[in-house]
Design a protein around this nucleic acid. Structure first.
Lengths: 294, 294
DNA sequence: TAAAAATACTCCATAGGTATTTTAT
DNA sequence: ATAAAATACCTATGGAGTATTTTTA
């Protein structure tokens, strides 16, 4: 059976006349009769009762008529849907994000994406470590990652977004809290709260490396999984922390942010599977490239 | 576009391999490739990404794959549904019924029909006058009528079901209530409650005709639309009534039913549109014919 | 270089056309 | 008597087959 049979049957059922139906279908009446008979033969039942004066639907034909119309509409709808997806107007996009960008960069980006692609279904996963995002990109559980630059982004496409200064998060009242700026050495010996996750966490690796390279002692008193917890711990006076600038969006009372001089910033990048054909991703990448240039 | 394209695409999408898909479809690989390309051409978009090592679905292709499977399943389901309807296993049947049969014959029949045709959707309309049922059959608002035999059943098929004796409904305590049987003359001069509806009501016509033919006076004090009201009025002592035997199923306290001798019974028949092709109706008619013979 | 899809061509099955007959009102 | 569907037969489009080339991992 083919869609042709359904199209022909629907037209005959609408016209209740083989001649008029054939005209509407731009074909002759005999082949139309043949095709309808062929359809009835395949179904093994009568869809129409014909006399020379009347063509009528049998009860089975009436039900089949309804179904056939639904099927033909579904065929059209499937094409339209595919078209919307292919053009990037509809689709799904799961975005991962590191903790430090979850509270300022991610909301801004979500706003921009939703404004530009209103019919796209977005999923946002905050507080993901950069290394976990790379794995999630490969296994397909996210389509786009907002992460720190990682050493080996094999098979991944990297779009630079911004460079974030490093700040020290200091409890109000601490001797360093009044400083306009400070140097890494000022933190030497101070109790530190750092990100958990070891090598999978870029913040953990970076902070540890900075102290090591400068030959300074890092006295880690706590390792926490979420950026929000990190800041809360500082506010509670449990220690100091080194954070990228967007973390200041977490304006927790009792925490003061002081820029650290003499250390490089941390790059925030958007990452996607290389040559991922998802048109929504392509449009999102274009949009992010534009935003980064501003 | 034809179902062939959907079948081929679904198979390729399932196998992710043109060669294996072609084998499953019992055809060669080149024409399969051609048909898929033709489908993509008609849709104006890519459904698959092919290399010599991998065949993958594009996002649009993944969506189209889901839809195509739904559509193919719908095509099968439509055929199955038509088949069930054609064989009378599924369908709709609206049954009309006269008041006197609404309370005993109709429930028995409903039970029998539902037992035999469990997937059929029945609709029952009780308390319909025979004339109204004939009209309802012609305009399609009922498919089967349980009615009294009418004089001119043009275009209708009539199946005799049973002959109902006529009884007098008498209030308890009335002088006739103790009689084993009575004659029509005993009712002459008594206050009568009869069915409303004039010529459209067979009960009305029959009772009126019986008195006229016997040259007896009929003293009609009330005309009511429902059989239940008729019996209630008798119970309330407003008058006597002539009713067919199945009405006794309405065992209202205070009403005694006494057989009337010397008058014919009233035939109850099932009526349907002549040559109505509805298989459910055909099966119902068979069933009723069987029941009537018992 | 080897596996797989695409291309080039050939063939025939069948969708669709024309002429005519049958059927029901 | 007539309108309309069915039948008979013919034509030709295009779906499917075979042989070969191209591509990429």
């Amino acid at each position: 059976m083919e869609l042709r049979h359904l199209r022909y049957f629907v037209t005959v059922a609408e016209e209740r006349h083989f001649g008029r139906a054939a005209a509407r279908l731009h074909m002759a009446q005999p082949p139309l009769s043949q095709q309808i008979r062929q359809l009835e033969g395949e179904l093994g039942l009568a869809l129409l009762t014909r006399t020379t004066r009347r063509v009528d639907l049998t009860p089975a034909g009436a039900a089949y008529f309804d179904r056939a119309r639904e099927i033909l509409a579904a065929v059209d709808a499937a094409g339209d849907e595919a078209d919307r997806i292919a053009s990037g107007r509809t689709g799904r996009l799961i975005v991962g994000c590191v903790g430090s960008a979850t509270y300022s960069v991610l909301p801004d980006m979500a706003r921009a994406l939703l404004a530009e692609l209103p019919d796209v279904e977005f999923g946002f996963r905050g507080e993901m470590l950069s290394g976990d995002q790379a794995a999630a990109l490969h296994d397909g559980s996210i389509d786009l990652g907002l992460m720190r630059r990682i050493p080996d982004p094999a098979g991944l496409e990297v779009i630079p977004l911004r460079e974030d200064r490093l700040l020290a998060a200091v409890p109000r009242g601490h001797r360093l809290a009044k400083r306009k700026r400070l140097r890494l050495a000022d933190l030497s010996g101070e109790p530190l709260v750092i990100h958990a996750g070891g090598g999978r966490s870029t913040m953990n690796t970076t902070v540890t490396a900075l102290f090591d390279e400068a030959g300074l002692e890092s006295k880690v008193v706590h390792q926490v999984a979420e950026t929000s917890t990190l800041v809360t711990f500082v506010a509670a006076g449990l220690g100091l922390a080194v954070v990228p600038e967007p973390t200041t969006a977490l304006a927790v009372p009792g925490v003061v942010y002081v820029p650290i001089s003499g250390v490089g910033g941390m790059e925030l990048v958007a990452t996607a599977r290389q040559e991922d054909p998802n048109p929504v991703l392509r449009r999102a990448v274009e949009l992010l490239t534009g935003l980064a240039e501003v």
